[in-house]
Simulated scan of single mutants.
Amino acid sequence: MSELPDLVLLLGLLAVVGLWLKLARGREQATQEARLQCRQHGLQLLDESVGLRGVRLLRQHGQLLLERCYTFEVSIDGNDREPGKLWLIGRTLSGISLPTIQSHLPGLLAEHTAPPAATDNVVPLRPRLHKDNTLH
């Protein structure tokens, strides 16, 4: 009679090990996909790693599917850290969220259009737009 609890314990342990191996393979797949997406979008994948953020069940075409969300960090210009996310169903990429260069345009434009340092204490102001979108 003591063989049954031992067998249940062994099966539970094998299930945990199998789940851990499956998640490790999924993480490797997510890392490869993050590298590929960063290369395609001109971004640098920082730390060369991803982290599992969440898991959820989805119903598509009458099937229950497991979708995993991974987070990672990228750099647009080598001087910043921006978050990225990707979602995988099995080995298939189901979604991705990457930062855009437009979010950095105000800072980049300010660097390139900044007036030269003045020798007096006058601060130059940018022209304001009036309500009808004309310069005031």
Score class of each variant (00 low, 15 high):
30 A>N: 01
20 W>S: 13
30 A>K: 00
74 V>I: 04
54 G>H: 07
25 R>P: 02
33 E>Q: 12
25 R>D: 10
27 R>E: 12
60 Q>R: 14
53 R>G: 07
86 L>H: 01
89 I>A: 06
36 L>E: 13
14 L>G: 11
94 S>Q: 06
99 P>E: 02
62 G>V: 09
80 D>W: 01
89 I>T: 10
69 C>A: 12
92 T>P: 01
60 Q>F: 09
43 L>F: 06
87 W>F: 05
51 G>L: 09
65 L>T: 03
22 K>R: 15
11 L>P: 05
76 I>K: 04
13 L>I: 12
82 E>A: 09
90 G>E: 05
54 G>D: 09
23 L>C: 11
94 S>A: 11
98 L>R: 01
54 G>R: 08
97 S>I: 04
94 S>F: 02
96 I>T: 05
45 L>C: 05
70 Y>W: 08
33 E>H: 06
48 E>I: 04
49 S>K: 11
77 D>V: 05
99 P>I: 02
21 L>W: 14
74 V>N: 00
83 P>A: 06
44 Q>M: 10
36 L>N: 12
97 S>G: 04
78 G>H: 04
31 T>N: 08
76 I>Y: 07
42 G>L: 08
11 L>N: 11
10 L>V: 09
98 L>E: 01
79 N>Q: 15
89 I>N: 05
64 L>Y: 14
22 K>P: 03
101 I>D: 06
100 T>P: 00
50 V>P: 00
79 N>S: 12
